[in-house]
Design a protein around this nucleic acid. Structure first.
Lengths: 110, 110
DNA sequence: TTGTTTAATTGCAATATTACGATAAATAGA
DNA sequence: TCTATTTATCGTAATATTGCAATTAAACAA
C-alpha cells in the first residue's frame, strides 16, 4: 500500500505532519537557512551554495513554495526567492503548540 | 537516485531534517499526542486508538523509539510506552533554535 | 507442559521521494 | 531576429516509506 490514510487522522495531525514533511530534508533546511542568512533575496546561487543539480533545487523550491514558506519574484531571467515571514511565523506557532506540551506528571512513567 | 546525499549537509542540517522526518507522519503525531494525553503508559491500545494494523503501529513505535522520543518497558505480555521527556525537551530545543530565527530585515524582500 | 495473549519481525506490494539528464520556456541583449 | 542565460518541467531510475498478512517470540496462566 504505502498510502497514508489521512482520513483516519485529524486535520491538525495531518497539518502538523505535512509541515514536518517539508522540513524533513537537509537540502530544504539548507535552503531556508541560506535564505534567512542572506537578507537580500537569492535566486539560483542556491544551486552553487547547496551543491545539488539545478532541477533538484528547483524541485525543492517548488515544495517550499507550495506550503507557502517561500515566495519568488521574477527578475529578468532569474528568480528571486525569500522567506514568507508571515507563513514562517504561522508554522512556528503550529509547531510550538505541539511541542510546548505540559506533561501531566513530572517524571517518566516507564 | 533518490539517495539523500547527507555528506553534502552539515550535522545540524541532517539532525534537524531527521527529527522532522520522524514527525512527518500523522500516525506518529497521533501516537505522541495519545501518549502525553494519557499520563499512564499505554501499550497496544494504540492499535485500537489509531486504527491501523498492529504491525504498522509496531513499526511506527520502533521509529519513535529509535530516535529516543519514546521508551517502552515490558509488563507481562504487554509493553508499556511513554514519552521520554528529556529527549522530548531536547528535540524541542533543537527545533526552536531553527524556528526562532530573527530575520535581518522586518519585511519580505520580494 | 499446553494454550492464550501480546508485541515484534518477516516478506512483500503499493506508493512516495529524491536526483538528474534532457528539454522547454522566458527574458535580456546584440 | 538570433543567442546566451536562467529557471521550470518532463521523464525516468534509484531508493525510501507505508501498510498489512503471516509468522515468530515472549510471557503468563492453567
Amino acid at each position: 500500500m504505502g498510502l497514508t490514510k489521512s482520513e483516519k487522522f485529524s486535520a491538525e495531525q495531518n497539518e502538523l505532519s505535512s509541515i514536518c514533511k517539508v522540513l524533513a530534508h537537509p537540502a530544504r533546511i539548507a535552503i531556508l537557512q541560506h535564505l534567512y542568512k542572506i537578507d537580500s533575496c537569492i535566486c539560483g546561487d542556491l544551486v552553487e551554495e547547496i551543491g545539488l543539480a539545478q532541477p533538484t533545487i528547483s524541485q525543492h523550491l517548488r515544495e517550499l513554495k507550495q506550503v507557502g514558506l517561500i515566495q519568488g519574484t521574477i527578475e529578468g531571467t532569474s528568480v528571486c526567492y525569500c522567506i514568507n515571514k508571515d507563513r514562517w511565523l504561522e508554522m512556528r506557532n503550529q509547531l510550538n503548540e505541539f511541542l510546548d506540551l505540559e506533561f501531566i506528571s513530572g517524571k517518566n512513567c516507564c
